[in-house]
Design a protein around this nucleic acid. Structure first.
Lengths: 338, 338
DNA sequence: TCGACCCTGGCAATCGTTTGCCACAAGTTG
DNA sequence: CAACTTGTGGCAAACGATTGCCAGGGTCGA
């Protein structure tokens, strides 16, 4: 009674197949993972046996000798941010299609966590996708020599990357606001250390210059919806009639605060967000935002990583992919008041 | 020039430590993973050496002999649903704290996918968390004999589970609506095959009976925000003045549709959702909903799984945990019109 | 006809760790 | 003081696959 499973059958191994077909284990291994190396008839026999026995290779054992683990890690800084849902969905699809497993790592916004985890798991991973790395450039470049890496929304020399071209979209956002009569626009800044934040702010200045506007910013504010309160208050302390916000999460937070304070959007102030995350379409009012191909970005990043994995010798892979955004006009922007 | 890394140092193994400290590899292994088995001084020496060499154990090799992989899979049916974000956040925290890696698997709402993936990965996993399994009871029970399992929001005999007690909350929701004068309440049903949906509907009927109300439902509707359109239309075809909706995602979808059709919430109709997902607080109007301790559910599920893993012999673990919900009243419910 | 070469399959080492078994020494008990 | 425990460390065999090297047989060209 001690053993509930009376005859717990050992999992099928390569040797079982070898025994069944009368060849050596090495031949089975080759037939299964290096088909060209074995004659067609033998291969067929082996594959049939494998199917019959319901053989499923032991990943651990395979990894031990071959070094390939079939696992890719995706590092995100904060599961709470819906932006990453899209990324995860994209990576998930693509990885599954390629037969890889997806290890999810939340770095909790800490670069140390990030590097420590990655270092620890280095040997159990075939590669890693860094969505929103908090690491300095040189640490990232260093890491890339230890393990195949692709970054998302982060451009570091020597590390392949998939970057969403939100800065280009910011130009569009500016056109939109200017055409509505806004001349006093403020940028609501995300965290100071954020790479995307820096590029967006830069794009904002460029756009402002093009239109002969003054440019200004408030912040920085930490990531997250909660910061919206402080951000909204800060914006109201300026004379701005419109603002472009670092991301949708922050923008949505601002919306809530503005409503609390009785400020009407867009009648009193117009707001443009970035990313078009889940929720941007049903918040109140629905957010005008720079729609990013988030899911596609995840897919592209995976494709790049897989490419570098497969053609380890031929580094003919595109080193950086830029994904276009577009402005989605909803109801948080309108003509300047007065 | 062919080799960019001139002297790529082999990773440190247990043998390097053994050589450095002058003991056998087996002793090193024991000192590190079975401390009691080795005398304090030796252990200290070994640990010091390990630290100095920056030794990090090879997961694959360890798994090969011990069977323990240090990896737990979390299966979700659809990454798009924010409900799972909370779950993932909870599992992530708890798993990391316990030193486990989290493998994320999206089953794409398919029971076959689910069982196939699980079967394939069975040997590379220490256990799995099934958030929203689509599997029939007996398949689940069968699977549980192959690999340690904990289900979330699904109760199957013989499988430990963490279940959110939304049905109890539905009683509260009914009280709330009745107190506002509603006598004609409809339940907006989720997918027919959904276990939580069945329990919620059941609770709804019970609550209705307690208040001497007729009970009715529309649907079933597929998961997802989009179904909100059909759901809203269906509700408007009834005489109901209020509805309780299977989950927030669907409820939010309905909100959008009702707005399109010029129906005012809550003036014309009151809506109660379930779960309190991301977005329920900032949609328009903010949703009255049954707040579920989503993140905590993830944590609890992990704790249960880990417990069964550690005390494989002592099955004194609680087999089923029920997590309480409460009603959060926002602005989508109000007095009956008239 | 003979050597060179390709194709196929087997042998055995290897990856890094765990663990059963044994041996030796020190401590305990009668 | 002999006989047993108990504590500690080493040896070596796994775990399940991959892969370098080798050998036999067939094919082909000279």
């Amino acid at each position: 009674m001690a053993e509930p499973a009376p005859h717990r059958d050992r999992p099928v191994t390569i040797n079982d197949i070898a025994a069944l077909t009368g060849v050596a284990a090495s031949t089975v291994s080759r037939a299964l993972s290096n088909p060209g190396r074995v004659s067609a008839p033998t291969r067929a026999r082996i594959q049939a046996a494998a199917r019959e026995l319901k053989y499923v290779p032991n990943t651990q054992a395979r990894a031990l000798t071959s070094g390939r683990t079939g696992t890719i890690a995706v590092l995100i800084s904060d599961i709470t941010n819906p932006f990453y849902f899209g990324i995860l969905r994209g990576t998930q699809q693509q990885l599954k299609a390629a037969g890889y497993a997806q290890l999810l790592i939340d770095t909790e916004d800490s670069g140390e966590h990030e590097i420590e985890m990655l270092h620890k798991m280095r040997r159990s991973l075939d590669g890693a996708l860094l969505a929103a790395s908090r690491l300095p450039d040189r640490a990232l470049a260093q890491l890339a020599t230890e393990i195949p890496l692709v970054t998302i929304n982060r451009n570091v020399r020597g590390v392949p990357s998939a970057v969403i071209d939100t800065p280009a979209g910011i130009g569009q956002a500016a056109e939109h606001l200017v055409s509505l009569g806004h001349r006093d626009i403020v940028y609501v800044s995300g965290p100071a250390a954020s790479w995307p934040n820096a590029t967006r702010w830069q794009a904002m200045r460029t756009a402002a210059a093009r239109h002969g506007l003054a440019w200004r910013r408030v912040g920085p504010f930490p990531r997250g919806q909660r910061s919206g309160t402080a951000a909204a208050d800060a914006v109201l302390n300026t004379s701005a009639t419109a603002c472009v916000v670092f991301n949708d999460l922050l923008a949505i937070g601002m919306l809530t605060r503005l409503r609390e304070r009785g400020v009407r959007v867009p009648a009193d102030i117009s707001i443009v967000g970035c990313d078009d995350i889940f929720g941007a379409d049903f918040c109140n009012p629905p957010l005008t935002t720079l729609t990013a191909p988030i899911e596609q970005t995840g897919r592209v990043a995976v494709a790049m990583l897989l490419a570098t994995l497969n053609e380890r010798s031929t580094p003919a892979v595109r080193r950086a992919v830029l994904l276009p955004t577009h402005l989605t006009v909803r109801e948080s922007t309108g003509p300047v008041r007065g």
